[in-house]
C-alpha cells in the first residue's frame, strides 16, 4: 500500500511541476498601459475613479462640473470642432440615441467638452448649432483650460495625439457616465447604440445592469448559448454541472459493489456498540 501511495505521490509531484512550467506561458493584464487594444480606453482601470471638477465655459457662462453632477448624473464626451473624422458623426449619433432612450434632463445631462486649445465658446456653440442641439439647456457645449484638459484626460484614461501630417487630433470616441463625480461606465465607439446608452443610463440611475460575455472563439464549454430571435438556451457545457454528482454516485456504487464482492478485509464482528 505504502509503495503504491509513493508512486502516486511521484506522479502528482511530476504533474505539479509540468503544470507549473505550463502556467508560465500566459500573463494577461499585467501591462501598465492605460490603453487597451486598438487604443480603446480600459474601462476597468478607471471605473469609480474621481473625475476632476473642472470649470466649463459655455455661452451661458462658466459652470463647474461638480455643480452639474451634484444635481444629476452627467454623460461626458470629449471632442473638437475642427475634427473631420469621428466627432460630428459621434455627437449626432449620441443625439439620436438620447432621443430614442429619453430621460434627458430628468435622469442626466450631456456635457460635450472640447479638448482642443484652439476651440472657443463660440466654435463649440457653432458645433451645437451644426448638430441641431443649440439652446438645449441639458446639452452643454463648452471649453475648458488646457491644464484642466490634461487633468481630466489623465483621470479618465483618455488619450489625444496630434497628427501634424493630417493636422488633426487622433483620439477615441468615448462617452463616459459620471455619477457623483466618479466614472460609472465607458461607452466606446463612433456610433452610440440606443440599447447600450440605455444600459449606461440605467447604471447611472443605480439599477443593476448585468453583463455576460458574447460567444467567442475558443470556448470549449458554455452554460448558455445566445441565438438571435430565440434568446438564450442551455448549451452542452451545462451538462458539466450535474455530471460530478452522478459520477460521484456511480463511483460510490461501484466502490461498494467491488469491495463487498471481494470481501478482502473480513470484519471481526457485526455487532458494534
Amino acid at each position: 500500500m505504502a509503495s503504491r501511495l509513493g508512486g502516486l505521490a511521484s506522479v502528482l509531484v511530476g504533474s505539479g511541476l509540468v503544470l507549473s512550467l505550463g502556467f508560465g506561458a500566459p500573463a494577461r493584464g499585467t501591462e501598465a498601459d492605460p490603453e487597451g487594444p486598438y487604443g480603446i480606453p480600459r474601462e476597468e482601470r478607471y471605473l469609480y475613479r474621481p473625475v476632476p471638477a473642472v470649470e466649463v465655459a459655455t455661452q451661458q457662462g462658466v459652470v463647474r462640473l461638480d455643480r452639474l453632477w451634484g444635481e444629476r448624473p452627467v454623460l461626458l464626451t470629449l471632442v473638437y470642432t475642427r475634427c473631420s473624422g469621428v466627432c460630428y458623426p459621434f455627437v449626432r449619433s449620441l443625439r439620436d440615441a438620447v432621443r430614442r432612450v429619453g430621460g434627458l434632463g430628468r435622469d442626466y445631462r450631456v456635457v460635450v467638452l472640447s479638448f482642443d486649445p484652439e476651440d472657443t465658446v463660440e466654435t463649440m456653440a457653432a458645433m451645437a448649432r451644426n448638430v441641431g442641439l443649440a439652446d438645449r439647456p441639458d446639452w452643454i457645449f463648452g471649453v475648458t483650460a488646457p491644464t484642466s484638459i490634461e487633468r481630466l484626460t489623465q483621470a479618465i484614461g483618455y488619450w489625444i495625439r496630434w497628427d501634424p501630417a493630417a493636422r488633426q487630433y487622433d483620439h477615441p470616441a468615448v462617452l463616459i457616465g459620471v455619477d457623483r463625480g466618479r466614472v460609472v461606465r465607458f461607452l466606446v465607439g463612433a456610433t452610440v447604440e440606443p440599447a447600450r446608452l440605455y444600459e449606461v443610463i440605467r447604471e447611472l440611475r443605480g439599477e443593476m445592469v448585468g453583463t455576460y460575455p458574447l460567444p467567442r472563439k475558443g470556448v470549449l464549454f458554455r452554460c448558455l448559448q445566445y441565438r438571435p430571435g430565440r434568446g438564450t438556451a442551455l448549451d452542452w457545457g451545462f451538462l458539466l454541472l450535474p455530471a460530478p454528482g452522478f459520477a460521484a454516485f456511480g463511483i460510490t456504487a461501484f466502490l461498494f459493489w467491488s469491495v463487498r464482492r471481494r470481501r478482502a478485509c473480513p470484519v471481526h464482528s457485526p455487532g458494534g456498540p
Binding site: 506561458a25 458554455r222 452554460c223
Partner: peptide
C-alpha cells in the same frame, strides 16, 4: 478547464460555468 486555458492552448472558458463549478 483552468489548466487548459492556463497552459496556452488558446482555449477560453465560460465565466458562468466556472462560477457554477
Amino acid at each position: 478547464l483552468y489548466t487548459l486555458e492556463g497552459i496556452g492552448t488558446g482555449i477560453r472558458n465560460d465565466p458562468l460555468l466556472m462560477k457554477n463549478l
